[in-house]
């Protein structure tokens, strides 16, 4: 293709990333305590909630990978952003309309000033 990037570099970066991720995993597995790969209540060490802990109202999910377990770390890490985003999704018709008007106003302003 064109430019200074090439698809091959992507593959290199991908392979290096895989190696780094594998090393990280090995290190984390050794450093963390109580990782269990198999058996009842397998516990993942980086992402995932403690399988032994009983979550109220979710007792029947114990030991299964449920939707809330995976990506726990990411979601907790930037929780504030997600809270802000979720708060905006109110589902109220008035909000939808006001956002539409805001969008049109923004486009209108930009086009009139610099168009």
């Amino acid at each position: 293709m064109f430019g200074y990037w090439d698809a091959l570099y992507f593959v290199y970066v991908f392979i290096i990333g895989l190696i780094i991720a594998y090393l990280l995993m090995k290190w984390a597995e050794r450093a963390s305590s109580g990782t269990r790969r198999e058996g009842e209540g397998a516990k993942i060490f980086l992402s995932g909630e403690d399988q032994d802990r009983v979550i109220p109202d979710f007792e029947h999910f114990r030991g299964y990978f449920t939707g809330r377990h995976v990506m726990w770390g990411l979601i907790r890490g930037i929780n504030r952003m997600f809270i802000a985003f979720r708060r905006e999704h109110t589902g109220l018709l008035g909000d939808y309309v006001s956002y539409l008007l805001i969008t049109i106003a923004l486009v209108l302003g930009a086009l009139i000033i610099w168009g």
Binding site: E88, Y96, I102, T103, V107, L108, L111, I112, G115
Partner: peptide, 30 residues
């Protein structure tokens, strides 16, 4: 003319809604 600019803004705003761009994507998720 200025009228054409305003017309373009209305068209782009309405079409951004129809394509589901943020912040007018909420109908899409419903």
């Amino acid at each position: 003319t200025l009228t054409a600019k305003i017309a373009l803004a209305f068209l782009i705003g309405g079409l951004l809604f129809k394509s589901g761009a943020v912040p007018v994507h909420m109908w899409l998720a419903d």
